[in-house]
Design a protein around this nucleic acid. Sequence first.
DNA 1: ACCTGAACACCGTTCAAGT
DNA 2: ACCTGAACACCGTTCAAGT
Lengths: 230, 230
Amino acid sequence: MPETKKTRKRPGRQPGTTLTREAILDRALELVERDGVAALSMRRLGEELGVDATAFYRHFRDKDALVLAAYDRVTDELADLVRELDPSLPWRTRLERLAEAGWALSERYPAMYSLGWARITGGPAEREIVEFILGTLASTGLAADRAVLYYRTFADLTLSLSGMRATVAALDPALREKDANAWTNIYAALPQSEYPAAIAHAAELQRVTETEIYELAIQALLDRVEREIG
Amino acid sequence: MPETKKTRKRPGRQPGTTLTREAILDRALELVERDGVAALSMRRLGEELGVDATAFYRHFRDKDALVLAAYDRVTDELADLVRELDPSLPWRTRLERLAEAGWALSERYPAMYSLGWARITGGPAEREIVEFILGTLASTGLAADRAVLYYRTFADLTLSLSGMRATVAALDPALREKDANAWTNIYAALPQSEYPAAIAHAAELQRVTETEIYELAIQALLDRVEREIG
DNA sequence: ACCTGAACACCGTTCAAGT
DNA sequence: ACCTGAACACCGTTCAAGT
């Protein structure tokens, strides 16, 4: 029986496909911000780059390593700011600028930020930012234990508040709406007698912005540092 | 041809399986804290309760609704504390107690907390806590817009810092180790000339605890409220 | 050295079929 | 009214087979 010439399986490397780490990370970042966290799958990323989903395992140990590397790329932008900051600025101004830039970053890359903010990449960008904050606080004359405590509090505060914002922003549209409605429904259907404070402040509650909250928290912390320096 | 009596498919409700909302949530909470966030799948939960994975769709719209309901159950414990708090305590003490209890909750249910902290459930427990914080701040004589701003900042701060801790605690053991090693490697392999501040504070950095950080952030905010009250 | 594609062990969810 | 089980459209990851 003559072998009918069916289209044979031909696994193997195709010509013209040269994957680089940089190209993968660029596309991953673009994909996740465009189509959301759930869209960042190996198969979708493979379609995007014209390769099989399993090709990435030659460049990253697993998906987590890929995501962390992409997040580190985002953090690079913060490290750039740190490098360019005028060293003659007062310590408080320097930290305020950093906090502001971190917030802006979480607004520019909500999806990626929501995936990485609670993780430690150990990358060079991260190290530079640690050195900057610690160096700035130490320059005020703060004792080592206090400088370290304020550094960690500043870092955790900025990361977690930006992270919260990014996480909410990166939620599936359907879930975001669900949560938004929950707020509206709370203040619409509240029994007056049981929730007097919530009712009395309903109008003001609608006006508060996330940015105000972030700034207040940072200022409260920096005030405390300033008072301790004396 | 006589039909051989093979074991026939017999879909349908089995006797003795009566699923309740409460039983589902109890088991979901137990499962997720015991085996981790990744273990909370409809199929695993089905095995746990001796029912098919699809049975839950008669009780919850989708998995997100199930998770949110389980998270609301955790929040109930905070509402209990709020209800039992002595109303004659100073406003600052009341808020400190709440902050402390929220932190403890994120330690007791890290997995569930990590799934819910950034979400708004709109449940009764949540409403009670909102009313408590807002009422406490308003009782200090703060203007409505300031009371609301401080309420939101207090809520976001406690939620996001506890959420960060819970998220890290609920990370896959393999990832947690990876991140922990990242820290160690940073301070072990740092070139002395480029990272003087990090090197100088390496010993102190190992000593800071998450709880200290949380308390400092809360105190900084409450100090600011106190100064504004005058 | 690097990529393919089948395969494995999973997911959430829908829906007709049962009791 | 409520549950089952097949089915669908997905996942991350491994590994032998290709170039």
